[in-house]
Nucleic acid binder design. Structure first.
Lengths: 136, 136
DNA sequence: AAGTTGATGCAATTGAGTTGCAAAGTTGTT
DNA sequence: AACAACTTTGCAACTCAATTGCATCAACTT
């Protein structure tokens, strides 16, 4: 397990410090995307700023991606193996207004959009709001 | 012109106060979606909170819609005539990373998404980032 | 004119995100 | 082992948008 964690960090050329192992471990357990605040609460003692910078590093190295689900706090979730976070690889996110959880709909790619002429595409954020299967 | 403004307010059953007429007037002039801060600067003297509440009212009454474009400040834009802000009516938004403007792509409806079973849909936010035609 | 309701303006608070800086830890070199 | 060079961590403090409380003001009702 620890092997696995270190492998993932190494694969993205992130130095495997204790903190980073811990954060990655917790992230890997989540079924939904989590905010910095939620993560913070999952540790006994955790410095907000270290967490913040850890997440930034993870995101830069494309180990995780962030989702702005419109709730005011950004959520983070693990990327899939070998993800490059390119527009074609992105998936839809779902925010449940009942349980307030944000889920990666990994199997639902973001549909392509025909932009007006001379518009270039870099990135897409698509968040669907509604009620998830568990809350109906 | 003033007639027009009052008609729009009345049509959505919003009491046409001076402030609201003014804000609606300025909103109608915009080519892109604007933040509260940007709006504030367009007035000589404007109280942030009044503006805030005016926008809230407008949004509740579906005179405007808000866009969370991921920049950290919410943008507002007029809805089209007779818009109910239902999922089928929503359009894609475009954030230009060059000019930092957020545009309503009114002619591009949000593509439909096949959600997993038992997920219900209430709303969709779709923001495409890239470079707009003016900035290329 | 008094009373009720809604709108406005100021002050102050919240809450997420961010920066600065010094201490602690890591790595590589002699 | 000792040193320098670099990275990571932790605390304090700050920024900035959004929001709330409360008192005042305007408009409409009886």
């Amino acid at each position: 397990m620890n092997e696995n964690i270190n492998n993932k960090l190494n694969a993205k050329s992130i130095k495997p410090t204790a903190m980073r192992q811990l954060v990655l471990h917790v992230l890997a357990e989540q079924k939904s995307a989590v905010s910095m605040q939620e993560l913070e609460q999952k540790f006994e003692k955790a410095d907000k700023v270290t967490l913040y910078r850890t997440l930034k590093t993870f995101e830069e190295k494309k180990l995780i991606h962030s989702i702005d689900d419109g709730t005011g706090s950004i959520k983070y979730a693990l990327c899939r193996e070998s993800c490059q976070c390119r527009p074609e690889e992105l998936h839809v996110h779902f925010y449940c207004t009942e349980c307030k959880q944000t889920y990666c709909l990994n199997d639902i790619p973001i549909p392509s959009v025909n932009l007006p002429v001379h518009f270039t595409l870099e990135n897409i954020n698509m968040v669907v709001k509604g009620i998830c299967a568990n809350c109906i």
